[in-house]
């Protein structure tokens, strides 16, 4: 989308150079570069500081490292319990994404393509749920989870994340499903396929872009979620990466270099993933409105 519209823009510009365009663009560049510095500087400092010794940090707080300490990453990994945290988070992200795909995929299919009774009531319910603040249910939910023995378990947190992400995912996938021609699944039905076969073999593969977007958004949300993670998981062996890192950074305030190294380990996968799938990220996060 962006490339085609850019092309169009350039063509328009070539045919009819905008008034004063060449005079104004440098100012636009200067301001944008200033914005970019404000956005990037703190992140660059994080990378610099991850590679310093404690001693160098004291004398050179924000500049580039003079003698990069690549060993900091291994030490941070070890002392921060990053491996365990990332493993727990990987489990949480994996099952949250799969669970959301299943729940939201089936529900969106029913909304978009089946003769679902009370359709508008269900849809209204989803809209209300999306705009319901976390605070309206977190207190009874916590004590319900205590009663059900789900506090301090990964599956307890996964169920919560699936429930939180399903409503937006249903509405997003629905827009993809509505646009698939009816003839396709009718043909499959006439060939003797049942509903589940129609859904899984004909329809869902065609909604793959939507599923990918949902997966990215839900995965990112589960990766960095703090409020439920910090409230519902206290067992040190089960902490996801966000709370593992929080404990490490608040407990070891003298080890700024190692804390920065841990930060780098945590965010590099996100940045790489983002650079490969920029468009899906922006579209997906805009449609979810869940991350604040």
């Amino acid at each position: 989308m962006s490339t085609s519209s850019q092309l169009r823009f350039q063509k328009a510009g070539a045919a009819d150079p905008r008034p004063g365009g060449s005079g104004r663009t440098p100012i636009a560049y200067i301001i944008l570069v200033l914005f970019a510095i404000v956005a990037a500087f703190p992140i660059v400092v994080m990378f610099f500081n991850a590679l310093k010794t404690s001693a160098e940090l004291a004398t050179n707080p924000i500049g580039p490292p003079t003698n990069p300490q690549w060993g900091n990453f291994a030490e941070a990994w070890e002392r921060g319990g990053i491996g365990q945290g990332l493993l727990n988070t990987a489990i949480i992200v994996f099952f949250t994404v799969i669970g959301t795909w299943i729940c939201a995929g089936l529900a969106a299919y029913a909304l978009a393509r089946l003769d679902l009774p009370f359709k508008s009531a269900f849809q209204t319910y989803l809209f209300v749920i999306i705009s319901l603040p976390v605070q309206s249910f977190i207190v009874p939910l916590f004590f319900l989870w205590v009663k059900l023995g789900l506090v301090n378990t990964l599956q307890g947190l996964i169920i919560i994340y699936i429930a939180l992400n399903t409503p937006f995912a249903v509405l997003l996938l629905r827009t993809f499903l509505v646009n698939i021609p009816k003839e396709l699944d009718e043909a499959a039905r006439l060939d003797g396929a049942n509903e589940l076969q129609v859904a899984s073999r004909v329809i869902l593969p065609l909604t793959w872009p939507g599923l990918l977007t949902v997966g990215l958004v839900v995965g990112l949300a589960a990766y960095g979620e703090l409020q439920f993670a910090v409230t519902f998981i206290l067992d040190p062996a089960l902490l996801p990466i966000s709370t593992t890192f929080l404990n490490f950074s608040q407990g070891q305030t003298q080890l700024f270099n190692l804390i920065n190294a841990a930060s780098v380990i945590i965010v590099v996968p996100l940045i790489i993933l983002f650079l490969f799938m920029q468009r899906q990220f922006v579209a997906g996060l805009a449609s979810s409105g869940t991350k604040g």
């Binding site: 914005f35 970019a36 956005a39 990037a40 703190p42 992140i43 994080m46 990112l220 990766y223 960095g224 703090l226 966000s242 709370t243 890192f245 929080l246 950074s249 930060s263 945590i266 965010v267 996100l270 940045i271 983002f274 920029q278 990220f281 922006v282 996060l285 991350k291």
Partner: peptide, 11 residues
């Protein structure tokens, strides 16, 4: 511009 939004809150 987008990367700061992507970083998780604890970081």
């Amino acid at each position: 511009f987008f990367i700061p939004f992507l970083l998780i809150s604890v970081v």
